[in-house]
């Protein structure tokens, strides 16, 4: 009972394409790795996503992109997270992300980008090693 800390992750699909298979696969992979994963589904507002991170007291927020909104949406998330003083939450991005976007995203404040095809062991290990709480 003493110190049964589980890693809590919030995952949301971002974008208007209406496909969230990739996001759901990530959710189940993280679950298989022993994490507790809140899945928010698709078509979420920036404020709602961040409020969910606050209310769930998540360790990690994962944004899943498929159709190219990452450079527009991510800075809004980062700003809203700052507003809510969520600097101890690990922000990661996944999905079909062009290589050239990675440094841009990292500059915005994303800690790590996992492109489609990343091994699950890779992001599980990354999360386990890097959570800040």
């Amino acid at each position: 009972m003493e110190n049964d800390k589980k890693i809590k992750v919030v995952i949301t699909k971002v974008g208007l394409d209406g496909h969230d298979r990739g996001a759901k696969i990530v959710v189940s992979l993280l679950k298989e790795a022993g994490m507790e994963v809140v899945y928010l589904g698709m078509f979420n507002q920036v404020e709602d996503i961040v409020q969910a991170v606050v209310d769930e007291d998540a360790d990690v927020l994962g944004l899943s992109y498929l159709s190219g909104e990452q450079l527009i949406f991510t800075p809004k998330i980062v700003e809203e997270m700052k507003k809510n003083e969520l600097d101890d939450v690990l922000l990661i991005v996944g999905g079909t992300i062009p290589v050239e976007d990675i440094p841009l995203l990292e500059e915005m404040g994303v800690e790590r980008v996992f492109r489609a095809g990343s091994l699950s062991s890779e992001f599980v290990e990354y999360i386990e090693k890097n959570i800040k709480k």
Binding site: K6, K31, E36, V38, Y39, L40
Partner: peptide, 14 residues
């Protein structure tokens, strides 16, 4: 929670 891994998918909030 999964009895095997201890992980869980929390999907009600959607």
């Amino acid at each position: 929670s999964s009895p095997f891994t201890g992980g869980a998918m929390l999907g009600d909030r959607i």
